[in-house]
């Protein structure tokens, strides 16, 4: 499996974000509110399911991951489990954005190293608060 490039130190002051949701319009909405939230942002990547997200993570340095849960091909839960197995991705701050806010899912999220849990629908200012409360971590090498 290809490793993330270590040639250049990531700019954690302007973190790269990966948005994972099977709805293209939800990705567009999250991208928009994230871009205008007032926090410095690097590159925003998009994936329609967990499998696509893993492919992006293999090729790009990402500091924040926003993921839905219910998705075809590979769910958000399966994605987060796969990420748990990779030490070189341990620095990635994980945020779930889902319509499913059940206690069961929230408990499961805690076990998957999820930092925040945002329930859909959310007001745009929620994303501003999320970003201002998160600090990108330095990758472990």
């Amino acid at each position: 499996m290809e490793s993330v490039s270590t040639q250049a130190a990531p700019d954690v002051a302007a973190p790269n974000i990966l948005i994972v949701d099977d709805s293209a319009m939800m990705r567009m909405m999250i991208k928009r509110v994230t871009s205008v939230a007032g926090s410095p942002i690097g590159t925003i990547f998009e994936a329609a399911n967990g499998q696509e997200a893993l492919a992006i993570l293999e090729q790009h340095e990402v500091q924040f991951l926003f993921t839905d849960i219910n998705m075809p091909v590979m769910t958000g839960t399966e994605l987060l489990r796969a990420m748990q197995a990779r030490d070189d991705w341990s620095h990635i701050v994980r945020i779930i954005i889902s319509t499913d806010g059940s206690e069961s899912r929230r408990h499961e999220a805690q076990d998957l190293n999820v930092k925040m849990y945002v329930e859909k629908p959310f007001r745009p200012e929620v994303m501003r608060d999320v970003l201002s409360n998160l600090t990108p971590a330095t990758p472990q090498r």
Binding site: D22, S23, N70, M71, P72, S98, T99, D100, G101, S102, E103, S104, R105, E119, K120, P121
Partner: peptide, 22 residues
């Protein structure tokens, strides 16, 4: 529709888990 359905189930059955299709 996904948001409305998910929000309804979360509000009325918060302790229980549902799987939603695409």
């Amino acid at each position: 529709t996904n948001m409305a359905c998910g929000l309804w189930l979360t509000h009325t059955h918060r302790t229980e888990r549902f799987d939603l299709t695409a």
